[in-house]
C-alpha cells in the first residue's frame, strides 16, 4: 500500500488546519470531526484528480468546504442576520472608533470572544475570514478554495472585518470596557 503512505504524508500535515476550519464552519467539535472524516474519505476517493506538486492544502480545503455546503450547511443554526451599510461601510469604523480611536479595547477582548464573533458572521463572510485571517491563507488561495475572484475575496473580507469590529465593540460595551455612545 505505497499509495496509502503517500496519501497520508500529503494529507496529515494539514489535519490541524482542516480541523480548525471545520470547527469554525460547523461551530461544534463533534461536527468538525464528522466533516473532516467525510473530507478525508472524499479526498482518498478523489485522489486521482489531485495534481502532484500542486497545493494540497487548497485542494483539501476545497473538498472540506464543498462537503460542508452539501452536508452541513442546512443543519447549521444561522446567527441573526447582520447588515452593513453598503453606501458607507466606514460608518461602522467611525462609530466603533469614536470612543477609543486607537482601538485599545481590542487588547482586552479575549480570544474566545473573537472566535465567537467570527462564528456569528454570515457564512460567506465567515468562511473568508476563517481562511484568511485565522488560518493565514494568502488571498489568492482563499479565492481558489471559495471559487471566487480575488477582488471578491477582498470585498468580502473588508465587510467581514467591519462587522467583526462592530461585534467586538458591542461586546466591549456589554462588558463595561467601553461606555458606548448613546
Amino acid at each position: 500500500m505505497a499509495d496509502a503512505a503517500e496519501f497520508e504524508s500529503l494529507v496529515l500535515p494539514h489535519l490541524d488546519t482542516l480541523y480548525r476550519v471545520g470547527r469554525r464552519l460547523t461551530g461544534e467539535a463533534a461536527d468538525a470531526e464528522d466533516l473532516v472524516q467525510e473530507t478525508l474519505l472524499r479526498a482518498w476517493r478523489g485522489w486521482g484528480g489531485f495534481t502532484a506538486g500542486s497545493n494540497a492544502r487548497a485542494w483539501l480545503l476545497t473538498i472540506l468546504r464543498n462537503t460542508f455546503i452539501s452536508r452541513w450547511r442546512s443543519r447549521r443554526r444561522e446567527g441573526t442576520p447582520v447588515s452593513i451599510d453598503d453606501a458607507d461601510p466606514n460608518a461602522v469604523l467611525r462609530a466603533v472608533q469614536r470612543e477609543d480611536p486607537e482601538g485599545n479595547f481590542f487588547e482586552r477582548v479575549v480570544d474566545t470572544q473573537v472566535l465567537a464573533a467570527v462564528e456569528g458572521l454570515p457564512e460567506e463572510y465567515r468562511e473568508a475570514v476563517v481562511l484568511s485571517d485565522l488560518e493565514g491563507l494568502p488571498y489568492a488561495e482563499v479565492a481558489q478554495v471559495l471559487g471566487i475572484p480575488v477582488g471578491t475575496v477582498k470585498s468580502r473580507l473588508f465587510r467581514a472585518r467591519r462587522l467583526l469590529q462592530r461585534a467586538l465593540h458591542d461586546h466591549a460595551v456589554e462588558l463595561g470596557i467601553l461606555r458606548g455612545t448613546p
Binding site: D16, Y19, L93, E102, V114
Partner: peptide, 28 residues
C-alpha cells in the same frame, strides 16, 4: 493604529488549536 490592533486581536485568537489525538486516531 486601530486597524493594526484589530488585526493583532484576530491573529491572537487564531487558536493554535490542534486536532485532538483521539479524533486523529478515529480519522485514521
Amino acid at each position: 493604529e486601530f486597524e493594526s490592533r484589530f488585526r493583532d486581536a484576530i491573529e491572537r485568537a487564531t487558536s493554535r488549536e490542534c486536532c485532538p489525538a483521539e479524533t486523529r486516531a478515529r480519522l485514521l
